[in-house]
Design a protein around this nucleic acid. Structure first.
Length: 555
RNA sequence: UGGGCCGUCGCCAAGCGGUAAGGCACCAGGUUUUGAUCCUGGCAUUCGGAGGUUCGAUCCCUCCCGGCCCAGCCA
């Protein structure tokens, strides 16, 4: 990997530096703790790069831990997809863990809390608990069961575990402070009864621990030093610390919160992502328009570019929205360096070169990468009839238009200078073919007399071209913050996918490998679709287009 | 006066009392057989606002303004 070594610093690394300097820690241990209830997205990538990146840079460790305490929503399928995505992003975990690995230990910690008078079995209904929790401004009321005898609570908790009660009949609650200004401290529920099959523990358990009880203890059990999570858990930190203090764990990880990634013109909430997939607004979790890791991979983003993106956006506690341009820049930077250059005509227009010998075919040498001669060359067949891009011809061209128009000479990349001499139209007046003449002296694209042409356009020989379908992707939404809209679906971009058929590619693309990235010269970066049998290419991102900008300004 | 957190260029982001890094975007040039890449230059006398402390404040204090999060037996 040729990524930059100047690692961005951030407030979390500053904390770690201080902890190492003070001797609070001698090594660093982090963890990436997804709940296996969906596919990973670009927001997770930020967390992954942060946690695994810290472990890498500090010679520390980082676990992959599945936060699987709610069997209602969690599935094995997601677990495997998550592992695949983390690995694809270029990281390997020290250990694969599951919160469910700790169910026995967690149970014992709960028993200790009960014995210490720090937890009790509450027999109120969920509704009663909600109604007595108080509001943001008013304190809650204590449960009538709050001072239940310790032995009675203990016995009931054991019976909860044995399955003697129905779902929801009782819960285990921490005994903290119903008047706390922090609602999380108002006797939070620690365990609930839930008869749901768990994808790992099967039907062994009918009680499942809550996040607040599980997460901190899992961190402590694994010896995590810095437990990095997102901002919405800030209010949970006092509870995180309370549980560890009361449980008396030998190790007390530090929870540190950072702002989650928000990208303009897309959504990253799991609920919305699920909705897009299940209501068929997109084809699948890995639809190339999705901000999922798998979708971006299929779209053609490289893992290096995603890592670079995560490095560039930084880590702070400030709510922020990153512009798409940053992601696109990261993609272009990596692809520009590594992608093979080829010629492909997206919207073909036939051109006949009148003075070129009828049956002649020449193999012209083309560079695979202009800045990297070591990447070699290839031969591209040239003949009397070729396809050029429709957009490269304009009948009434403005002076700044460097491409083809009647009477103007341009260079066919790696081939010849050609001048447009005539235009053929169909009955409706649409241009269907161009007639050009070429200068045999300019073979390869250089003119011996030194005359210059302003434009160079790409082309493909008609008789050698191979057909392909090309998917042009654009932002999924037209609203910069679709998630904030009343109905985000209404803001979907109707042109987020434009399917082109009968695109014409140079023959070398016939056996394009799905993992290989190409620059279709002058149009963008593309990758062969990994799902389609046929030759289908996905556009990852366009090239920067100064002409489009000029054209827009003149319009 | 419910609690917690945040506010440095259009978007991100360094800065941690000594006089505003960097990236993206944008603008202007140069090179170029991709209007790509690459290169050069420009782009915050100012850090949400007002006071205060200090020789000196983006960094400390006070107040004010603005934004985000929290009332799942979700995570």
């Amino acid at each position: 990997m040729d990524e930059k070594e100047n690692v961005q610093t951030n407030f979390i690394r500053n904390i770690i530096d201080a902890d190492l300097a003070s001797g609070k820690h001698t090594s660093v241990y982090t963890r990436f703790p997804p709940e296996p209830n969906g596919y990973l997205h670009i927001g997770h990538a930020k967390s992954i790069c942060l946690n695994f990146g810290i472990a890498r840079d500090y010679n520390g460790k980082c676990n992959l831990r599945f936060d699987d305490t709610n069997p209602d929503k969690e599935e094995e399928e997601y677990m495997h997809a998550i592992m695949e995505d983390v690995r694809w992003l270029g990281f390997e975990w020290t250990e694969e863990k599951h919160a469910s690995d700790y169910f026995d230990q967690l149970y014992m910690f709960a028993v200790k809390l009960i014995l210490d008078g720090k937890a009790y079995v509450d027999s109120q209904s969920a509704e009663d608990i909600r109604n007595t929790r108080g509001t943001l401004k008013q304190p809650g009321q204590e449960s009538p069961f709050r001072n239940r005898d310790i032995q009675e609570s203990l016995g009931m908790f054991q019976r909860m575990k044995e399955g003697e009660f129905t779902d929801g009949e009782h819960v285990l609650r921490a005994k903290i402070d119903m008047a706390s200004p922090n609602i999380n401290m108002r006797d939070p529920v620690l365990y609930r009864i839930k008869r749901t099959h768990h994808h790992r523990t099967g039907d062994d358990w009918v009680i499942y621990p809550m996040y607040d009880f599980t997460h901190c203890l899992s961190d402590a059990i694994e010896g995590i030093t810095h437990s990095i999570c997102t901002l919405e858990f800030e209010d949970h930190r006092p509870l995180y610390d309370w549980v560890l203090d009361e449980a008396g764990t030998p190790c007390h990880p530090q929870q540190i919160e950072f702002a989650r990634l928000q990208l303009k013109y897309t959504v990253t909430s799991k609920r919305k992502l699920h909705q897009l997939v299940h209501d068929n607004h997109v084809d699948s979790w890995d639809d190339p328009r999705m901000p999922t890791i798998s979708g971006m991979r299929r779209r053609g983003f490289t893992s290096a570019s995603i890592r670079d993106f995560c490095d560039r956006i930084g880590v702070t506690k400030k709510d922020s929205f990153i512009e798409m341009a940053v992601l696109e820049n990261s993609a272009r930077e990596d692809l520009n360096e590594h992608a093979l250059r080829v010629m492909a005509v997206l919207k073909p227009l036939k051109v006949t070169i009148e003075n070129y010998p009828d049956d002649q075919v020449e193999m012209l040498e083309a560079q695979n990468h202009p800045q990297h001669p070591e990447m070699g060359t290839r031969e591209v067949p040239f003949a009397k009839t070729i396809f050029i891009e429709r957009e490269d011809f304009m009948e009434d061209a403005p002076k700044k238009f460097f491409r083809l128009t009647v009477g103007r000479e341009v260079r066919l990349r790696y081939a010849y200078y050609v001048t447009c001499t005539d235009v053929i139209k169909d009955d409706s007046g649409e241009v269907i073919e161009l007639i050009c003449s070429y200068d045999p002296e300019t073979r390869g694209g250089d003119s011996p007399d030194g005359r210059k042409v302003k434009g160079t356009i790409h082309w493909v020989s008609v008789q050698h071209a191979i057909d392909a379908k090309i998917n042009l992707y654009d932002r999924l939404f037209t609203h910069p913050d679709p998630g904030s809209a009343e109905n985000f679906i209404e803001h979907m971009n109707p042109d987020s996918l434009i399917k082109l058929e009968q695109c014409k590619l140079e023959p070398s693309l016939a056996e394009a490998d799905p993992g290989k990235h190409y620059q279709f010269e002058r149009t963008g970066y593309f990758v062969r679709d990994s799902h389609e049998e046929a030759l289908v290419f996905n556009r990852t991102v366009t090239l920067r287009d100064t002409w489009a900008k000029i054209d827009k300004q003149n319009a």
